[in-house]
Amino acid sequence: MPSQRDRQARVATYVVYAVQGLSFASLLIQVANLQAKHGLDEGTLTLLLLIVPVLAGVGSVAAGAFAARLGSKLLLRIAQPAVAVAVVLTGLAPNVPLLVPVLLLFGVAVGAVDAGMNMQGVAVERRYGVQVLNGFHCVWSVFSMAAALWASVAAGLPLPLVMAIPMVLAVAGSLYAGRDLCTKDEEKADSVAAPAGGKVPWRPIIPLCLAMAFLYVGDAAVSNFNTVFMKDVLGASASVIPLAYAAYQAATLAVRLGGDFAARRYGPAAIVRVGGAIATLGFLGVVLAPNQPLGIVAFALTGMGLAVVAPQSFSAAGKLDPAGTGVAIARVNLFNYVGFIVGAALVGGIAEAADMRVAFAAPLVLAAVIIALASGFQPKPAVVPHKIY
């Protein structure tokens, strides 16, 4: 049975995921308002938005090196408040020259937190001895939705205030969680030595990295282009257009609620394989959708299928790094941003050259490849640790 200390670390990790979901969404959902505030054209906006995933990749790699030396607890105590500060400064920035360095800070910090929180999630999962990572990602989704609801309710308030108020809660949550997160020593399994030479091998991690990238190609396709597809291809009205993304997020949340149970019962490789198949079916449905209701159902299926990939990628990466250095997790997390950047460019480019239906065939093919990569989600640990309980 888990100890009281393990339960404290689990609660603290839930809070970290909640704060990250709240913080990230608090900036993301204000993109249109920031564009209007600074008078940005589409090209300039796209360049500014690319700053975040590019710098987040840098932050993720740096997080791996930092956590290997000092642990992810200290990393999160520094980086997570920095994310909140960057969100507030984004709302306050009076012009583009001041907005750019704020986005640089946000990108590096959010990448570090993404890596660090999953290091903590894997550490808790290791100490519990059962799958718990889907539950953490579920909390992230819930608080992302909460940020969107707050923005809707507070739409009449000044933009800096709308963005700042949730960040008060974010900083408070981060400070609270920082006390009880797993320490560097607690992130390690008992009686496990570091890998030979202090290095984690790349080869067994590659299938996880590829699956993470392909997941986020699909996520970028849905996130960036679902509204365009519903409006221009299916002729949806303003009231119907948002239902596609709402269905995608609701399906993602629903699957993650039961994801840990499914992983424990059937194994991570099996649920990733099924998830890849469902996502492939969903993207096929998007390509072929003859009307709006079936289009919405198809977007929901993509969310249902893709939902399991990220938590299981991090869980499997943790098994490949039983010494708890965080290096494997940081590598996998990097491909989150690679996939998102490639997805936005790939789908957008195909849509411009051909049409939007053809563009969604790209994530369809990559979702199918996830099925073939599923066996990599049940790797043999680099070192077999002694059981803790």
Rank of each mutant, 00 (worst) to 15 (best):
A112V: 06
T280K: 04
P268R: 09
S144W: 04
R273L: 15
M163Y: 14
L70G: 00
P311K: 02
L334F: 14
Q20K: 10
P94C: 00
V287I: 09
V122N: 09
P207W: 06
I370Q: 04
V384I: 15
I370F: 07
L215A: 01
V347I: 10
V96W: 10
G107K: 05
L92K: 04
R179E: 08
A172S: 04
V54P: 10
G259Y: 04
L47T: 11
A36L: 11
R10D: 13
N336I: 05
F143K: 06
S223E: 00
A170I: 14
A246R: 09
L284G: 06
G376E: 10
T325D: 10
C138T: 04
D41S: 03
F283V: 11
A307E: 07
A247Y: 15
L175R: 13
G303L: 05
F225Y: 12
V132H: 10
Y128T: 01
A345G: 05
A359F: 06
E186Q: 11
A67M: 15
V369T: 08
F299V: 00
A289P: 11
L49H: 08
M119V: 15
G276Q: 07
E352P: 03
V153H: 08
Y266D: 03
F360Q: 03
A262F: 15
V274D: 12
A236F: 15
A18S: 15
K199E: 11
L334G: 03
V327T: 14
A164T: 14
R7K: 15
G91E: 03
G135N: 07
K319I: 02
N333F: 01
A151V: 06
D232F: 07
A65K: 13
A374Q: 11
R77I: 00
G39P: 03
S237L: 14
A84P: 05
T325A: 08
R69N: 09
L89T: 05
A56I: 08
R7M: 14
F377R: 09
M145W: 03
R203S: 02
V102W: 03
A372G: 07
W150P: 06
G343R: 02
E186M: 02
L253G: 08
F335C: 02
F340M: 09
L208W: 02
A170R: 10
L92H: 02
P53L: 02
A82G: 12
V308S: 06
G39S: 01
A251F: 10
